Simulated scan of single mutants.
Amino acid sequence: MRNLGVLKAMTLMIGLTVLSGCATIKIGPNYDEPLKQQVIESKPGATGKVLLINIQGVISDQQHEGFFGASPSLLDRVMMQLKLAEKNKSIKTVLLKINSPGGGVTTSDILYHELMAFKKRTGKKIYVQMMDVTASGGYYISMAADHIQAHPTTVTGSVGVITILPEIVDLTKKIGVEVKTYKTGPMKDTGSPFRKFTPADDAEMQSMVDQMA
């Protein structure tokens, strides 16, 4: 099944290469190094390029700390590559290869609007290939594409916002723990696991989640 997925991914990239007369490239950024270009697939005499951007894992604005130092967050990396694609006239199309369960609401929203703004400024097309999982925020940013390809085994959908809060009041009473709260407003401790949720708490939390969706 994995080999079939790889084959379909290569088919899409090659198809874009042939249709646009472009070479498919990938750019790997690092905070302390310039962007590097790697040719993945090329057609003889091709002058244009398709930029391949991998969106893997949780969509986040957190930078990655490694043994050799920090590397850009997923948000920074995608935006860096979009800026390069905007300046580089030989890049005709952007292909997003997405394998993500989603992530932060704000980061996903920023990515979606950055992709839409990129298309508006440049007139360049965006294609999306959904891999194993493209859900929630991954699905959301896919909506900025001009064309989406999903595999038969791709898990996608699940658009929305969720907040899960524990309530352990009965447990604390059972083990003899008492928590005192001092607050400046009636809703300041909404979501605290150390007191029973009131109808007002439920309404406030649901309102916040609805606004983020």
Rank of each mutant, 00 (worst) to 15 (best):
I110D: 04
I175A: 09
A203E: 15
V105K: 10
N3P: 00
A117H: 14
V105A: 08
M79H: 10
G28S: 10
T134S: 13
G45H: 12
M130K: 07
M143V: 01
P193L: 05
G69Q: 06
D146E: 08
G191A: 12
G103H: 11
I162F: 00
D170R: 14
L165I: 15
P29T: 01
A85C: 12
R77T: 04
G21E: 06
A144D: 07
G5H: 05
M205G: 00
L16K: 01
G185W: 10
L51R: 02
N54F: 04
K196Y: 10
A144P: 08
N30F: 00
G5W: 02
G176Y: 00
K89Y: 00
G45P: 11
P152S: 01
D132V: 07
L19G: 02
V58K: 13
L111A: 11
Q56C: 09
K180P: 10
F194Y: 15
K196N: 15
K124I: 07
A144N: 07
G69S: 04
K92S: 02
D32F: 14
M205D: 00
L7T: 06
A145T: 05
K43E: 01
N88V: 01
Q129G: 07
D32A: 13
K89F: 00
P34G: 08
A144E: 08
Y31L: 12
V209K: 07
P29F: 02
V179T: 15
Q129F: 04
I168N: 11
A213E: 14
L115K: 13
D170W: 09
G160P: 08
D76R: 07
L16I: 02
D61V: 04
L35S: 03
A46Q: 01
P186K: 15
A150F: 02
Y140L: 12
T122I: 11
T17M: 03
L95I: 05
G66A: 10
A144Y: 08
F67C: 00
G28D: 06
S90K: 09
D210Y: 11
L51Q: 02
M130N: 10
F194A: 12
K83W: 06
Q37I: 11
D109Q: 15
I59H: 12
V209A: 09
V209E: 05
T184S: 15
T134P: 07
G21P: 04
M130V: 01
P34V: 08
I91C: 10
M1R: 07
T154Y: 03
V209I: 12
H64T: 10
T181S: 09
T198D: 03
K174M: 11
D32N: 15
E86G: 14
A135W: 03
G28P: 00
R195V: 08
P72R: 05
I27H: 01
M1G: 06
A144Q: 05
L51H: 04
V6F: 09
K120L: 14
